[in-house]
Design a protein around this nucleic acid. Structure first.
Lengths: 217, 217
DNA sequence: TATTAAATTTAGACAAGCCTAAATTTTTTG
DNA sequence: CAAAAAATTTAGGCTTGTCTAAATTTAATA
């Protein structure tokens, strides 16, 4: 099995490689892991030795099949724990990331499998992100950004692209929660902000910074 | 805050100092931590520097007030997680120790407090051991050993002194679970084994190795 | 009580992960 | 396309927690 730290690197390499596809750079990893590039280089050599990444010096890095499977196992655990924290313990969706970051490294197949059943085998986490399968594959869900929805369309909020507590709290204060139906009534040609109706009475303007980070279908 | 390893030492020092009261020896700690005496010596110096233990070289070790409070915080987390694993995830009481051993080091006051509420603020863990208070004190519960119960008395099984999976599984197979009422009908003068009645129809002989490790009231 | 045995501590080393500073490679730009 | 800038890697070190071997202290015994 792999160390706590190795698991973190795999998870982060996975996240970065889907975000900006192609090879992941050392500097990007240094920023995400809150370490220095030199430390990342050390770890990359180690992960390459273990056949978890494809690594050509100076050329960036990519997960091997096995590396991706391992990364998805960690992400599965992370997201299941987030569901637990929100659904069972009543945490807000803006509070769970750091705690799940620790829980995800608890190594027990049995624990994960029982937790999954206890939670009713959820398909997405509290931010709408899909939960990888036990086999280690990431379900692909097609969503549009709210910023791509046209006037008159009615859609349901299904997820977020930005996970910072600040953004999530902003959504809470705006009443824009997951599962919430919104109808686009106007798009400002000036700043691309969007007027949405949440219900018969309630409507609000949503800035384009927000609409670009809201996933709907 | 203290490291994963330091927390483990505190927890184990607490356990050993209640078991055989007085100072805890280096060798006993080495056995419990599955390390060597030399490693324990190193750690004791560190814990003493942090004022978590009273330590006189060659003389054994004892927790300070602060050390005991920290130890009890870890034990509280451990036992709450054990309740979760058994009550919510359906693990057997013989399966939860190692997993709780990892979960106990997750550091979030909020998490522990919400978990406690979610579980209904249990007073004991699945083995009948009391759960320390949030303030860091250990509730004292007075139990007798089944081996000290006289013929004719009816008592309820409340806990175990031995926590090995083997022992717990043996109890499962015998039908001796927590909360179970047993009536002592005979004590063998030969080997001190005890005949107990679980219900009208069911009775069995319990060896003295078992009765000495069963707590009742 | 002197001496051996057991327990404990110290000394010196090692692996994991991190760091800074220096060297190297790649990319950008004048 | 050569020089400067940026990105990356290497070299050498540090900390935590571990180890073995040797030294020291305490306990046991003849």
């Amino acid at each position: 099995m792999h160390s706590f730290t190795e698991e973190n690197y795999l998870k982060i390499i996975y996240a970065l490689s889907t975000r900006q596809n192609g090879e992941v750079t050392t500097n990007a990893l240094a920023e995400m892991t809150a370490t220095k590039a030199a430390s990342v280089s050390d770890m990359l050599r180690k992960l390459a030795d273990k056949q978890l990444i494809h690594y050509r010096k100076y050329q960036g890095v990519r997960l091997t099949e096995e590396g991706e499977r391992q990364a998805l196992r960690v992400i599965r655990r992370h997201r299941l724990w987030e569901v637990f924290l929100v659904e069972k313990l009543g945490f807000g969706w803006d509070q769970v990331h750091d705690i799940a970051e620790e829980l995800e490294h608890i190594r027990s197949e049995e624990l994960v499998s029982r937790l999954d059943i206890f939670l009713g085998s959820p398909k997405v986490d509290p931010h709408g992100d899909p939960i990888p399968t036990p086999a280690g594959t990431m379900p692909q869900i097609e969503y549009r950004k709210l910023s791509d929805v046209g006037v008159g369309e009615e859609v349901t909020i299904m997820g977020v692209l930005e996970h910072s507590p600040e953004f999530l709290q902003h959504l809470d204060r705006s009443g824009l929660t997951l599962g919430c139906a919104v109808k686009v009534s106007e798009i400002s040609s000036f700043d691309k902000s969007v007027q949405v109706h949440l219900s018969a009475e309630k409507s609000l303007f949503v800035s384009c910074e927000v609409t670009r980070n809201l996933l709907v279908n």
